[in-house]
Design a protein around this nucleic acid. Structure first.
Lengths: 338, 338
DNA sequence: CTGAAAGCGCTAACAC
DNA sequence: GTGTTAGCGCTTTCAG
């Protein structure tokens, strides 16, 4: 068994209450006693029990992070932002993935509830309505990352302004002289895909270009295979586009592959733009023009938000949404059409 | 306040003990009572307190996962393997990153200790000796992933057979007809780098090729920049190699970039091989020959191992190491020299 | 400045 | 089958 404050108390010849207070720097304990106790605790390798403390204080000092897929490259940086923000604080981080599996989602939320996490960060496009209701009734702050589905007063939002982003991407291609611009979407990405497509459409409209339904292809997933398939569809058109905006970089990479396999070249024959600016976007050939979503900051802001809420009094006024703006990254995959 | 077993007991007209037993399917409680209690618990939205249970049972049902950098692409899959294995079990997962920062490492381990995690999976090349000693004294199972540094009876190991892997890679290049094969390493990657280089050297030896010190370059990091720098060094040699084996795929991608920038082509002028088979290895141009490290399985095995240990009696005999073997993936970045 | 006592929510002897 | 009692390790009134 681990050493407890009682053990320390015995050795120090004081009550365990005093030990508790000393270790927590209670102002009413003499400097001398505090020093003595702390030294003793150190010597005995005392490690406080979070369980016991939590039971008493009703705070676990744990934050739950629920994601859809751990392998999502987007998530890596979000997670890093969260972890970096939490690490210096006294909070630890529970991680769990739902995989769009309701069974699993339920289990995960149940576990978080049992562990009495002090807050939850949700970075998953999909969240079951009943699960959210269940979560809400626990009465802990919930922050949703890049999920504007919920217009709920009890839920805090941190998200990136996607509409504006694809508008800028479209503008960029228009500025280069492109007139035939396609959009390669991802049907399973829900709201996010809708927003990006919306930005694309707004961009075309703003440039006075017609919206051509043939140029909008929505594959199912957001993986490279989808880019390959979608791009092949576009290449088969009587009048193929000269530029393509993809839902994300993975799809863009697939698109480039398809174009190359068709004996054409990027960007010479067709310009390709991605979205997300994943690590490798700069290393593919040609380096990818894309939109940098501030992933790290998204995680950071979400974590900061929760920490603020937890440190504030319940009633305090808080912004219930943080909107982040990314940055257009122009690389070699987009040039003027010839 | 959340509802407790006492609340349920009151409503049901039984003692709280009976409630506890009923919820845990204690054999001595009548079917009827169990059903009634469970129904009532459901209605009242009862959620057991892991803290209270843990305090009593001395098991937190939490596993700690400590990594070096969350953004390591290798880790993503390891983590997924761990999560997938843990998810169906009753265990939750604490995640923390150390970043090679002793201060942070200490804090992280401290947090894990306070939370009384039931076991720890360490996936970090580096681990401070004192921290490990500290960990060991807590007397919980510790599994190290891809870290053979510790020859310690109290520590369990799960790792990939890297030496054999680079030996195979070298063999592959030799089979293609290469005689001038270089190795682009990463000094900061410690033991792992040593193993991979060792396999390379053994491969050369086995093929009867001389070991040329000029062909072994160790950059500092394992990032693409390092590949660019290292490759530029090799290109500047009077007699540059015709093939390069890189410490990992990221470096290989950098190397390809450097070769391309020098006006040469991969694989026509120089063959390049990576290591790890990261997701994007197949999408870069040209698709990368590499060695697939079973990342997911590494995580899976580590988690399984810990779960087994925890379910076993303390004394039971357990294998203290699991060695996994990967697979050579031949793609277009390696061809015969011309 | 310090101690005694109570209790957080749960499980586990030990009774009956 | 079910209840009584104690206690896990800690914090927190309330006394002194």
């Amino acid at each position: 068994m681990a050493v407890t404050i009682k053990d320390i108390a015995k050795k120090a010849g004081v009550s365990h209450t005093t030990v508790s207070r000393a270790l927590n720097d209670h102002p009413a304990i003499s400097k001398e006693t505090v020093g003595r106790i702390k030294l003793l605790a150190e010597e005995l390798d005392y490690v406080p029990s979070a369980a016991a403390r939590g039971l008493k204080t009703n705070r676990s000092l744990v934050l739950g992070v629920i994601v859809h897929r751990i392998e999502d490259p987007f998530l890596t940086d979000v997670l890093r932002g969260i972890e970096d923000t939490l690490n210096p604080s006294e909070y630890s981080l529970f991680l769990a993935a739902t995989k769009r599996d309701p069974e699993r989602e339920k289990r995960v939320i149940q576990a978080m509830a049992e562990r009495r996490v002090d807050g939850i960060i949700f970075s998953s496009l999909y969240i079951g309505v009943q699960q959210l209701r269940y979560l809400k009734q626990i009465d802990i702050p919930i922050v949703l990352i890049n999920n504007q589905t919920m217009q709920d007063p009890d839920v805090y939002l941190v998200y990136h302004q996607d509409v504006e982003a694809t508008r800028q991407l479209t503008q960029h291609l228009v500025d280069l002289g492109h007139r035939k611009i396609a959009y390669l979407g991802s049907a399973r990405s829900g709201r996010t895909n809708v927003k990006r497509q919306q930005g694309y459409e707004e961009g075309l409209e703003k440039a006075g270009l017609p919206l051509c339904p043939e140029y909008i292809i929505s594959g199912t997933t957001s993986r490279p295979e989808n880019g390959i398939n979608g791009m092949n569809g576009l290449l088969a058109l009587a009048d193929p586009p000269t530029a393509v905006i993809c839902y994300n970089d993975m799809i863009a990479i697939g698109a480039i592959k398809a174009i190359t396999q068709a004996g054409l070249s990027v960007p010479h024959d067709i310009s390709v733009a991605g979205f997300d600016n994943i690590d490798l976007a700069q290393y593919v050939t040609p380096p990818l023009t894309t939109f940098h979503q501030p992933r790290y900051q998204l995680g950071q802001e979400a974590a900061k938000m929760i920490l603020h809420i937890l440190q504030q009094d319940k009633g305090a006024q808080r912004p219930d949404a943080v909107v982040l703006h990314g940055e257009l990254i122009i690389r070699q995959s987009t040039v003027s059409p010839h």
